[in-house]
Design a protein around this nucleic acid. Structure first.
Lengths: 221, 221
DNA sequence: AGAGTGTTTGACAACATAGTCAAACAATAA
DNA sequence: TTATTGTTTGACTATGTTGTCAAACACTCT
């Protein structure tokens, strides 16, 4: 860990938000990057541009800071979903889902990293949250699964397991953010103009998932 | 982090390998789960079923242990690639790539997690490794990109950016392992018989990437 | 058995990190 | 101006973690 890509080495502290908010955002970043045990309060304080005892003044303990950030994170995450538009062609629903998901992860990249870190540490929290969402009548998550199943039944799309499909699309949307330094090193466009790269990625992903690679002339079972 | 999915809570120490190997494997797991800063030597020692000072006896310092494991990890990772078979249909090449990649990540799950952790902490090491591999004439990584480009030129597959495609496929292969607890909670088959789930996943991913979702009857631009 | 080798152990020292606290400070209202 | 309130600071303590070491141990060879 001696050499590091300088990821926004400008500390969050330069924004002129109030102290509590700055701590909050700094904690989000550091916990996301390093996990709960890997994060140091000093590192969070530096990132926020404040003195360490202030962390305790505002959030008492590391544990409580962690929980406070986690709670807002999870709410935001679930709320960041749109319900798929009813009725339209499935291709449009899919396009909207991909575009929105990638935008959402761009905005909440550290939230995504946080969830990944939690998962790698073995925490069931994301699973519980999603299971609850999928079980909730009318939740955007469940609606998306139902949209897929409906499209399969109506023959609009080829038969496919809805959960496998969701996992595939979500993987393809989230993973590049989780491996951001690598992506930026492998793709010049990603390094120069990341937003443009993401637009390209949205288009690519939709193309592949919707139409596949096989050219139309080639027929197959 | 209070509640955790009991991921192989049987410590590695139960295998009757020699001490050094047990430390090695325990370190791999713990570093992968927690990152370098999050990992505690005591935790590694417990996982290996040995006393902590033995870590220092065999590897001197935490840093050196980390580097020793990282080095073998990276070599193994690069070697775990097969060159794509020359000449065959691209669909076969793709199928082989997906199958092999998923098998490879299953075997080296903690290696994959390690890389993700490194990336999230901002390390350029994976990017450097891959950039080198892609620049090396005749490397399996480069061969795969060339196979895609060849298939595009010959019209065997629709026009697609080879690097975007690789990222999409790799994301879809790796991400489920990185979010394993969640995947197991969302999909009953994954919880009951993970190997069977992976076979299903291989088939699904190939189907989607190769043929897409659109049913053949629907024509489009 | 006894010397020699490599391994394991428990006790310890040095350092890093979390958390506390009283004093200093800034802003405001009386 | 002086209280009052909430915020910030530096110094401090307690605990956790890494790293060291000498003694104990197990094993082989003579």
């Amino acid at each position: 860990m001696s050499t590091q890509v300088n990821e926004s080495q400008v500390p969050t502290g330069s924004d002129d938000l109030d102290t509590e908010t700055r701590i909050f955002e700094a904690a989000l970043k550091v916990f996301a990057r390093k996990g709960k045990d890997g994060a140091r309060l000093q590192e969070i304080a530096d990132e926020a541009g404040i003195h360490r005892p202030l962390l305790h003044y505002y959030f008492r303990t590391k544990q409580q800071l962690y929980e406070a950030v986690a709670e807002r994170l999870f709410t935001d995450f679930l709320l960041s979903f749109d319900a798929p538009a009813e009725g339209g062609r499935f291709a449009d629903t899919l396009k909207a889902f991909i575009d929105h998901y990638i935008d959402s992860v761009r905005e909440h990249r550290h939230a995504a990293m946080w969830m990944v870190t939690e998962n790698m540490a073995g925490s069931p929290i994301l699973g519980e949250m999603l299971a609850r969402a999928f079980a909730t009548e009318g939740s955007p998550q469940r609606a998306m699964v139902e949209a897929v199943e409906l499209a399969v039944e109506s023959g609009e799309i080829r038969p496919v397991d809805a959960r496998q499909l969701m996992l595939t699309v979500v993987s393809a949307c989230v993973f590049p953010f989780v491996t951001l330094p690598t992506v930026k090193m492998m793709n010049p466009l990603a390094a120069e103009d990341f937003d443009a790269y993401l637009e390209e990625r949205k288009a690519h992903l939709f193309e592949v998932v919707c139409h596949g690679l096989a050219s139309r002339e080639v027929s197959d079972a």
